[in-house]
Design a protein around this nucleic acid. Structure first.
Lengths: 225, 225
DNA sequence: ATAATAGTGTCTCTCAGACATTATTTA
DNA sequence: TAAATAATGTCTGAGAGACACTATTAT
């Protein structure tokens, strides 16, 4: 049934990888036919779809443990001019590089395949139906952020509450009240303080981390309705 | 790239169709290899995945306009013993037959392919990973019911508030308070009263219908948290 | 000392949840 | 008139949202 070349015919996975760079949400794109596209690959016969997607992510970012979730499968006959193609699309959250850590396995800015991060508000031309994919992925990301704790996946292991709030604001596209944000995020019980502080321009800020033992019990209740 | 027989190789769609029968939630199953499976078919080269799924649903229930949504794509190499197979799984909500209407295009109980409705609490043995698919579909159905208005898709065009409440209770698996249910469902503004009443054993009940003009603006806020 | 950022508490109002009685019909 | 189901309002407690000042550091 499968092709002789060891790949499944007519099938690929694509990965929409989000990351925070500076003060903006970025996505990872590779060149394709003069435009840009989400990185992807065909699927080897003996690999699962999840493996194909996380392999793709690893080879572009060097990360093994990023948040990865299947988004949607696109399969309209007209969507790819060069013959019928089914795309199983994933979306991934790539943590920002750890502050002050040397030689971090952080998202690279260039790659063998020419992958680059682009801010989501100013994207180059995208191939085929990839713009629609991105719109859907963004909607889902915002949505997930509201009722689950997925925002931490974009931050390094430790972070300040202000950084966390900026992350939420960046993705939701709105300002949040500092005191209300802190009250709710702490009440949710998904982060805990560490003994460390981070010094900056003003008063040093306490560093928090995601509570590993709370990962399982993702809150069903919305955090930010 | 595509097979010579006009179908995409290694790819199928499956449909998990839910319906209310009597006082229970049912799913539609067909015989397959001595067990039962969700109805499905391979995908013709020139058809979209959505079309393949809705065609499948039409051929089994006679319905053209049922609620249909892509659920997940399963593609692990080990899941199908007879060679690698990718299953794009949809879930569908089939409305109950209209009360008192003759020759209704309602869900048939038997079909050319031997399709039958089974209550979700007492299912026969399911093929391959179909039990896991069902568990996920049920979770998603319950979840959608809580924050959107999808419950109406399982009812005929007009219904009483008690029938609607029973639907919610059946799917969520818990009793709901009558007054609170009515308050919230009416405040949500997604149904409207009709002039008609339905007579039964006791006091006749007002019939309601889904507000067509409110279909688009699905409430983002949860109805039943 | 000044600039910069971190950190904290209260009040109000809305909404979810619990709860019991009256109204209208058929048998 | 009895049995069955429909329809309706109030109170209470929890949580969301608005809001301003003090604390601690670097320059």
């Amino acid at each position: 049934m499968s092709s002789a070349d060891g790949f499944l015919p007519n099938l690929e996975v694509r990965v929409i990888a989000f990351s925070l760079q500076g003060e903006r949400l970025h996505v990872l794109l590779v060149p394709e036919g003069g435009q840009r596209a989400f990185p992807g690959s065909r699927v080897e016969c003996e690999r699962s779809l999840d493996e194909a997607a996380s392999g793709q992510l690893y080879c572009l970012t060097g990360l093994r443990e990023a948040y990865l979730e299947q988004l949607y499968t696109y399969g309209d006959p007209e969507r790819s001019p060069g013959g019928r193609l089914i795309s199983v699309v994933y979306f991934a959250l790539v943590p920002a590089a750890q502050e002050g850590a040397a030689a971090q396995a952080a998202p690279m800015n260039k790659d063998a395949a020419g992958a680059e991060w682009f801010p989501v508000e100013s994207l180059p031309g995208l191939v085929s139906d990839h713009a629609a994919m991105l719109a859907y992925a963004l909607r889902r990301l915002r949505y997930k952020l509201e009722y689950s704790a997925v925002g931490f996946q974009l931050l390094p292991e430790v972070f300040t509450l202000t950084e966390l709030q900026r992350t939420y604001e960046m993705i939701l596209g709105e300002k949040l009240d500092k005191r209300n944000f802190r009250r709710r995020i702490l009440q949710a019980g998904i982060i805990e303080p560490t003994p460390r502080l981070r010094s900056g321009e003003g008063r040093p800020a306490r560093l928090y981390r995601y509570r590993a033992d709370a990962v399982a019990e993702v809150k069903a209740r919305r955090l930010f309705p």
